[in-house]
Measured scan of single mutants.
Amino acid sequence: AVSDRLIGRKSVVMEAISPQNSGLVKVDGETWRATSGTVLDVGEEVSVKAIEGVKLVVEKLE
């Protein structure tokens, strides 16, 4: 599936994300709604860990 190619990809937070609120990330020039178990600020680099419905699950790059 097209979405499977996103797992493991680097992306950049475009709208802040917290455990309570989804935000936005940009992956390969496309904007996606995303969630995370931690707070992520605009501009942080993250990695796509999973896809749940139409949202990406991301975490901060170490």
Score class of each variant (00 low, 15 high):
31 T>P: 06
3 S>L: 14
59 E>L: 00
13 V>Q: 03
44 E>V: 10
46 V>T: 04
49 K>F: 05
36 S>T: 03
1 A>W: 11
61 L>Y: 11
1 A>Q: 13
56 L>E: 03
30 E>W: 06
45 E>Y: 11
45 E>I: 15
54 V>Q: 14
22 S>C: 14
31 T>A: 08
17 I>D: 02
29 G>S: 07
52 E>V: 13
49 K>V: 15
32 W>S: 08
53 G>D: 07
5 R>S: 10
19 P>G: 06
11 S>N: 03
52 E>Y: 08
52 E>F: 10
20 Q>E: 13
62 E>V: 13
56 L>A: 04
60 K>Y: 06
31 T>G: 06
21 N>G: 10
25 V>K: 01
20 Q>V: 10
31 T>K: 08
41 D>S: 12
31 T>M: 14
14 M>H: 07
48 V>I: 14
28 D>P: 00
61 L>F: 11
40 L>D: 02
19 P>L: 06
35 T>P: 03
34 A>Y: 00
28 D>K: 01
42 V>P: 07
28 D>M: 09
26 K>Y: 14
41 D>I: 10
32 W>N: 08
60 K>A: 08
5 R>T: 09
44 E>A: 09
9 R>H: 07
40 L>Q: 05
35 T>L: 07
62 E>L: 12
26 K>F: 14
33 R>P: 15
17 I>R: 00
44 E>S: 07
3 S>A: 13
57 V>Y: 08
62 E>M: 11
16 A>R: 15
37 G>C: 14
39 V>I: 12
25 V>C: 06
5 R>I: 08
6 L>H: 04
37 G>P: 09
55 K>H: 15
3 S>M: 14
45 E>F: 13
35 T>D: 09
26 K>L: 15
12 V>R: 07
21 N>F: 12
19 P>H: 05
53 G>L: 03
20 Q>H: 12
51 I>R: 07
40 L>M: 10
7 I>V: 10
36 S>I: 02
48 V>Q: 01
62 E>K: 11
59 E>W: 00
43 G>E: 04
27 V>C: 09
49 K>M: 12
59 E>R: 01
59 E>C: 06
38 T>I: 09
34 A>D: 08
9 R>F: 06
15 E>C: 10
2 V>L: 14
32 W>E: 09
49 K>T: 13
24 L>C: 08
41 D>C: 14
12 V>T: 09
36 S>Y: 00
26 K>D: 10
46 V>P: 02
44 E>F: 06
44 E>R: 04
33 R>A: 15
59 E>M: 06
14 M>W: 07
43 G>Q: 03
49 K>W: 01
31 T>N: 11
54 V>S: 14
48 V>P: 01
18 S>E: 05
2 V>H: 12
58 V>Y: 00
4 D>K: 13
59 E>G: 09
47 S>V: 15
24 L>W: 12
4 D>E: 13
36 S>Q: 01
42 V>G: 02
14 M>F: 09
59 E>S: 07
46 V>G: 04
28 D>N: 09
58 V>Q: 02
39 V>F: 15
42 V>F: 05
36 S>E: 05
21 N>C: 15
6 L>I: 08
60 K>N: 05
28 D>L: 09
24 L>T: 11
20 Q>A: 11
60 K>S: 08
26 K>I: 14
21 N>Y: 12
